[in-house]
Computed example of a mutant assay.
Amino acid sequence: MTETRKTFTRAPAGERREALIRATLALMAEVGPAAATVRAIAERAGISQGMIRHYFQTKEDLIGAAYEWHMRGLTGATDAAAGPVGGSARQQLARFVAAALTPPVIDAQAMSLWAGFIHMVLRDPRMRAVHERTYRHFRDRLQDLIDAALREAGRPAPPALARRHAIACNAVLDGLWLEGCALPEAFGPGELTGIGLTAVAAILDLDLAAAGAPSTKAGTA
């Protein structure tokens, strides 16, 4: 009997690095963090185990890169779903809030991955640093939109107040995102986005309903 040797793909360095990250995320989503062994990741990515160290010194470095990729991807998906820049500052803020609470951002697998990573944040300083960077990345994007909307309304906020607004609004979105991902059937069409827009509007004392936010089916995922 002849032995079939595993063949590995040759691809540009950037593609191989991305393949390793995607393989890590896929394995974690399918069967949990424990299943994301170096061997399993390499096989899923079609890359030899030895090549992994060419891109990541340790498995922990790869896990950290996967976490950052995942979280920045959610922010990117929110921006993409919000649509191109245009309209008033309030409209841009309303679209961003609505996008953060609708598919593809509302997604059970995305939440499952987040849950798999988050326990590592408490015990690994590297993961904590990734968490802080990605949290600030989303919050800073939200703060920029809030700042622009308040300026447009003739109520520019000092940086410290704009930061507090962003923290509060981000907390609202985080909570609704978790519930929407975990229990999508518990919410009617547009219910999550409606709650999110109402809450953010109350925090900022802005009329976001008049901004013409899109009507979306946030209750489905």
Results as ranks from 00 to 15, higher is better:
A100D: 05
L150D: 11
H54E: 12
L178M: 13
D79T: 13
A19S: 07
A171T: 08
R44Y: 10
T7E: 14
F138V: 06
W69A: 15
I41T: 04
S215Y: 11
I47D: 00
C169A: 15
A36I: 02
A29W: 01
P184V: 00
R16K: 13
L145C: 07
F187P: 02
A65W: 05
I21K: 04
R123E: 13
T220F: 12
A213G: 10
L122E: 14
V31Y: 10
A34E: 15
P184Y: 02
W177P: 02
L176F: 01
A153W: 09
G76M: 08
L27R: 03
A160Y: 09
K59T: 09
A209E: 14
G73C: 05
R16D: 11
R163C: 10
T58I: 06
G188R: 08
A82Y: 02
A211T: 05
Q109M: 13
W69D: 14
M71H: 12
A13V: 12
A162D: 04
Q109E: 14
E152A: 08
A218N: 12
R141S: 13
G154V: 09
A202H: 10
A129K: 06
L206T: 08
G116I: 05
I203E: 01
A211G: 05
T102C: 08
A221S: 12
T198I: 05
A19Q: 04
H54S: 14
E43R: 13
F187Y: 13
L93T: 03
G86Q: 00
D140T: 10
A166E: 02
G83L: 07
Q57V: 14
